[in-house]
């Protein structure tokens, strides 16, 4: 605080602090408080808002527990987000290891650029691109048939597989970077020491590299999991009638039913249950929150 004052003077410092405070308060905290408060109130005609029927209750939350379909969709969301997280890790870990320890140092910036370029395109466009790629007469089926791998086109966009493909594609870099940082921070001598003591490559990964990367993997996993479970765009574009994402239900409550109260309750349920789930998984893998913050 004193440093800031010394460096920028009182006027600029106040502007910085006020802007930050505005962002936090007006754009993050207040809307959340508003939704939180609303989630305990019933959905009423405007005339009755503030009237005798406008009382606090858990009714909106209970709606979820009384609806087996919503519970099932919720479980699917958690399950498939977990699978997406695992797939992201399986893709990102070898890539991170290659970038951090194997690739020619001169090549690494170019490789990172190539990885980044897709991120410059908006998520909507990228999801639409997958929509086109995966469609029944799309390039993927065309290519696979052309190569003689399949005879008849595959209906990709059924069940959760297209959603998972889209989510993995959208969020894999959020796994790659923390894992890359973790691998990179490992002293190469440790890898060589393990090999020198006779360890085959897989044991070196299992006993030396992976344990070292655990905080990075945890941080990447939490990010990918939370983003996937909270994603609305990808499931909206790539899901089919038999695969629904929990965020779509929140959207239905809010925009189709205009019931913001129940929608809010569902949104908080998603947040709370996901947080509990993540904490549980972190406990199982013995990762501490402070490890991730590193």
């Amino acid at each position: 605080m004193k440093d800031l004052l010394n460096r920028y003077g009182p006027v600029l410092t106040s502007i910085f602090i006020l802007l930050t405070a505005f962002w936090l308060l007006a754009l993050v905290i207040l809307p959340n408080i508003y939704l939180f408060e609303n989630s305990f109130r019933p959905y009423l005609p405007i005339a009755e808002v503030g009237g005798p029927n406008d009382t606090y209750s858990f009714d909106n939350y209970l709606k979820f527990f009384e609806s087996p379909i919503h519970i099932r969709v919720f479980i699917w969301t958690i399950l498939y987000s977990s699978i997406v997280t695992v797939i992201c890790f399986i893709i990102a870990y070898p890539l991170a290891y290659y970038l951090a320890k194997v690739a020619d140092l001169k090549l690494v910036p170019t490789l990172f650029l190539l990885l980044f370029i897709p991120l410059w395109v908006s998520e909507i466009l990228r999801s639409f691109a997958w929509f086109i790629i995966l469609s029944l007469k799309g390039p993927l089926n065309f290519g696979l048939i052309g190569l003689g791998i399949i005879e008849d086109p595959i209906r990709w966009m059924t069940g959760f597989r297209s959603v998972m493909i889209g989510l993995v594609y959208t969020y894999v870099l959020f796994m790659l970077f923390p894992v890359y940082n973790a691998v990179q921070s490992l002293d190469t001598n440790q890898i060589e020491a393990s090999e020198d003591l006779g360890a085959p490559w897989w044991r070196t990964h299992w006993r030396v590299i992976l344990p070292h990367c655990k905080p990075g993997i945890a941080s990447g996993s939490v990010t990918v999991f939370m983003l996937s479970a909270g994603s609305i765009l990808v499931p909206t574009l790539l899901a089919s009638t038999n695969s629904r994402w929990f965020t779509e239900i929140i959207q239905q409550w809010m925009f189709e039913s205009q019931d913001w109260n129940t929608g809010s309750a569902y949104a908080f349920l998603l947040l709370i249950i996901c947080t509990v789930f993540v904490s549980l998984v972190m406990r199982i893998f013995k990762v501490k929150l402070s490890d991730i913050a590193k």
């Binding site: 002293d187 001598n189 440790q190 060589e192 020491a193 393990s194 090999e195 020198d196 003591l197 006779g198 360890a199 085959p200 006993r207 030396v208 344990p211 070292h212």
Partner: peptide
């Protein structure tokens, strides 16, 4: 012969002990 197959053991300059074990 790969390093993990050689009858040698190397002590590194920075020792390279495994800190998590």
């Amino acid at each position: 012969t790969r390093p993990n197959q050689r009858p040698t053991a190397l002590i590194f300059q920075n020792l390279a002990l495994f800190p998590l074990m």
